Computed example of a mutant assay.
Amino acid sequence: MLQRQTILSVSTSDTGFVDITRHLARFVADSGVKTGLLTALLRHTSAGLVIQENADPDVLADLADRLEAMAPRDPSLYRHRSEGSDDMPAHVRAMLTNVQLSIPVMKGRLALGKWQAVYVAEHRARGSDRQVALHLTGE
């Protein structure tokens, strides 16, 4: 059984989605693991990890719009404001998205579907440097 770990650094510029699929695929390819499981954990509470469509950018735009509707950036709606008016809505959005994903590895590749990609979903209005802890096990 092989195990590999690393920290992937992802810079975001504002609210939206950053495709990290190629970074994950490279990590798997470089590991030598042919069959296994990749676990990714976003080490933050105001962003998320999601698997979504990679073909039509309108999907990501619509998702961003729905997240805005569910957790608007209206400071009058929240008690917690000490880290900025966008922080509490970002926490709510992070609760709606994942912070951890598990992706099977088959034949040395991520077992994602044809139209799937892995994204860091930035929920803060100002970007940030995000960290994704990766753990790969397999043979």
Rank of each mutant, 00 (worst) to 15 (best):
Q52W: 04
S13I: 15
V33Y: 05
G16N: 02
D14P: 08
V50G: 00
L42V: 00
T35M: 14
S11N: 15
S13C: 14
H23T: 14
T39D: 11
G32F: 00
L49Q: 07
L24H: 05
R26D: 13
R43I: 04
V18E: 00
T35W: 13
G48P: 00
A25K: 12
G32V: 07
L24T: 05
T21R: 05
T45L: 05
R43H: 01
Q52P: 04
G32N: 07
D19C: 07
L37S: 03
S46Q: 03
L37T: 04
V28F: 06
L49F: 00
I51Y: 07
A47D: 01
T39N: 10
S46H: 06
K34D: 14
V33G: 15
T21P: 11
I51W: 02
D19I: 07
K34W: 11
V33Q: 09
G16A: 08
H44F: 01
F17I: 09
V33F: 09
T15A: 08
R26N: 12
S13M: 08
T39S: 13
T21F: 11
L42Y: 03
S13T: 15
A40H: 13
T12V: 05
V28Y: 09
G32K: 07
V28H: 08
S11E: 14
H44K: 00
S11C: 14
H23D: 15
R26Q: 13
A25S: 15
G48F: 01
D30L: 12
D14V: 15
H44C: 01
S11M: 12
T35K: 10
S46C: 03
S31T: 07
K34R: 14
I51V: 06
D19F: 02
L42G: 09
G16D: 01
S13L: 15
L41T: 11
H23P: 14
G36L: 13
L49R: 01
L37C: 03
F17S: 11
G36P: 02
I51D: 00
V50E: 03
D19Q: 07
A29V: 06
L38V: 01
T35Y: 10
L38G: 06
F17M: 12
L41S: 06
G16Y: 00
T45H: 02
S31P: 00
R43A: 02
K34L: 15
S46V: 07
L37I: 09
G36W: 03
S31V: 06
